[in-house]
């Protein structure tokens, strides 16, 4: 085959005689099985579908231009006040975990049983609803279960969002992506360059590293958690002391040393004194820490 000088040879594909030809293939219904005004897929119907797609595309672009994709501040694992919120299509499962019968010792109900029943039921629907009837009003059990699931999912989603907005109000929080966008707009209006988001992730430098207070710091109990390099421990949500002067003044820092703050235990002031530091040393230390401001 294909060795001869004939240039107009046509390759004809034949079956393999070793493969038994099956004759009991399921017969696919073609359009002729449904009498009526059928239409060829290519090109007539596909062009109409394309028109529908174009309308959808215009809708997407209107949405894109009216509401740009949100972007908040860079991820900061030490941020303890952020209210976590999954994307909207996971909210119904998230909300479920807030009810007492689906959390704590019953958390399996919220994480496995309900989602398992819902998604398992959907996955196996054709094997559970095996009757020949296709109209939904003649399949009361299947349809009722679907309506029930729909109502529950919508209810959970709506109330999850409701709780979230209430929580935002109660804590006086403006979602970060809105705050960040407002800052960008304000910068744009005042002619400033847009705030470079990268800056906030940069670790501030230590101010006045040669100050004797830096030596006092190394002797204090602060070091054991906030680290010799003042960087804190992101994983344990211990904040860095670099740039701490932006948040607290000297009096505030002394108060924190004495009384603690958040998950930081009180009594660090006295514990440091027990390690041989004097009140004057700790005063200098607080002075120095208050000077730890981020370079502008």
């Amino acid at each position: 085959m294909a060795h001869g000088p004939k240039s107009n040879e046509k390759i004809v594909y034949v079956g393999d005689s070793r493969v038994i030809k099956r004759s009991n293939k399921p017969v696919a219904y073609d359009y002729a099985a449904y009498p009526g005004k059928s239409e060829v897929f290519i090109p007539n119907f596909l062009l109409k579908e394309w028109m529908v797609a174009v309308v959808a595309l215009v809708g997407v672009l209107v949405l894109v231009m009216s509401d740009p994709a949100p972007l908040g501040y860079p991820a900061d694992p030490t941020n303890t006040s952020f209210i976590p919120m999954p994307d909207w299509y996971f909210l119904f499962m998230y909300q479920l975990l807030k009810y007492p019968y689906a959390s704590d010792q019953y958390v399996v109900i919220g994480t496995l049983v309900f989602p398992g029943l819902l998604f398992g039921g959907l996955l196996l629907a054709p094997f559970l609803d095996t009757g020949k009837e296709r109209r939904f009003y003649r399949r009361p059990i299947a349809s009722a279960l679907m309506f029930l699931s729909l109502i529950s999912v919508i209810y959970l989603t709506v109330f999850s969002w409701h709780h979230y907005t209430k929580e935002l109000e109660a804590t006086g929080t403006i979602p970060e992506h809105i705050k960040a966008e407002e800052e960008r707009q304000a910068a744009k209006k005042s002619g400033q360059p847009a705030p470079s988001a990268g800056k906030t992730t940069q670790v501030a430098a230590i101010v006045d590293e040669s100050d004797p207070a830096a030596q006092i710091y190394q002797k204090s109990t602060c070091v054991s958690c906030h680290g010799a390099d003042l960087k804190g421990q992101a994983a344990a949500k211990i904040p860095a002391l670099r740039g701490v002067g932006d948040k607290h003044d000297k009096a505030g820092l002394l108060a924190i040393m004495k009384n603690g703050v958040g998950s930081m235990p009180p009594g660090q002031y006295d514990a440091s004194k027990a390690q041989g530091l004097s009140d004057a040393d700790l005063d200098k230390l607080a002075d120095w820490l208050a000077k730890q401001k981020k370079a502008q």
């Binding site: 952020f82 499962m93 975990l97 992506h177």
Partner: peptide, 18 residues
């Protein structure tokens, strides 16, 4: 960003409770 980070943290925490 923070929204992404904490949503993922919570999501993984929920998955870890299985």
């Amino acid at each position: 960003d923070n929204k992404a980070y904490f949503a993922t943290q919570v999501g993984i925490k929920i998955a870890a409770s299985v």
